[in-house]
């Protein structure tokens, strides 16, 4: 596609990219006749649920983005006032943007690499691997509880384990949570440590790769690195792609960790977008403004998702393209 991406409305871009993705089979007319009735029947559970429970709330939130609705009493139409305020007057909005982008850029690649590496490690029939999988998944299920907040703050505290190790290695202890330069790292490390869900999806993906292919590769004398690079990686690309998209979306929307561990501080360095939005909505009663923030976030995530879909054709390998 040669037209510059930036000139298209985002929803359209996502739409195009997605239609590309969802209706891939159209390239192969053989065997895939169009069948509207069957198609809609299959997607009807989602479609009905969407129309019943999501569509109206989404429409309402779009409307509210242009009002000063304050939760307790009805809002008045204020046009683009919310957006103007966001970009020109709200100092904290800028801070929350910086924090969020920093976090996404750090967490998404680190988490994916870690998850894939560990999934490879655990994709074996060695004895006891069951238990290791369970152990590795545990940080992810302890995820959002108050326990993690206390434990994490203690780990990175002035007398915490992390500083003890640092001192052992000859470094000066760092005030991780109090220093505006380092606080975000405690959350990045927490997120990477909770790599369980992408790991599990990778594992499931690895299970789907036919073992015949590995056998064939072995017979051809491929080294284990070659097997990974030639067989595993290409066949896993749909799953890598899925994990990438989902990590982008999820980490732009990151909320819980900052909410319970750092509460956005210090100096707003971990004031992630959704946390700020939530505070504006429920602590400051500015639901209209928060709705406007939500829709800007949707545009940002939509842009990066669409971009990923665009780029996916160069590296994602689907069985349906072959034939």
């Amino acid at each position: 596609m040669s037209e510059p991406i930036a000139t298209l409305p985002v929803s359209k871009r996502v739409d195009e990219a997605a239609s590309e993705a969802a209706s891939q089979p159209k390239r192969r007319s053989r065997g895939f006749k169009q069948n509207n009735a069957v198609g809609y029947l299959f997607i009807s559970p989602w479609l009905i649920g969407f129309l019943l429970f999501s569509f109206i709330p989404i429409a309402i939130s779009l409307y509210l983005a242009f009002t000063n609705y304050d939760l307790l009493s009805g809002g008045e139409w204020t046009g683009l006032r919310n957006f103007e305020r966001m970009f020109t007057q709200d100092i904290r909005y800028g801070r929350s943007m910086i924090a969020t982008f920093k976090y996404v850029l750090l967490v998404v690649p680190l988490r994916l690499m870690f998850a894939l590496a560990v999934a490879m490690l655990l994709n074996t029939k060695r004895r006891g691997v069951y238990w290791f999988r369970a152990a590795y998944y545990i940080p992810s299920i302890i995820g959002a509880s108050v326990a993690v907040a206390v434990m994490w703050r203690q780990l990175f505290g002035p007398q915490g384990v992390i500083n003890a190790i640092a001192q052992l290695l000859g470094f000066d202890p760092i005030n991780w949570l109090g220093n505006p330069d380092t606080a975000i790292w405690t959350l990045v490390i927490l997120a990477v440590w909770q790599f369980g869900s992408p790991m599990l999806i990778f594992l499931a993906g690895l299970r789907q790769i036919p073992s015949e292919l590995y056998e064939a590769a072995s017979i051809d004398g491929a080294t284990s690195w070659q097997r990974f690079y030639r067989v595993t990686l290409p066949l896993l690309t749909p799953i890598i792609f899925f994990n990438l998209i989902m990590q982008i979306i999820a980490n732009f929307r990151v909320f819980t960790q900052a909410f319970i561990v750092t509460a956005g501080g210090p100096l707003d360095t971990t004031l992630f977008y959704t946390l700020y939005l939530y505070r504006r909505a429920f602590n400051d009663f500015q639901m209209g403004y928060a709705s406007a923030m939500a829709w800007v976030l949707l545009l940002i995530i939509g842009f990066f998702t669409a971009l990923s879909f665009r780029l996916s054709r160069y590296w994602v390998f689907y069985e349906t393209k072959e034939g």
Binding site: V150, R153, G157, P158, N175, W176, G178, N179, A263, P266
Partner: peptide, 12 residues
């Protein structure tokens, strides 16, 4: 305690 140290406490 400095503000930085207060922020680092194990529990709020």
């Amino acid at each position: 305690q400095s503000y930085e140290e207060i922020q680092a406490a194990a529990s709020t």
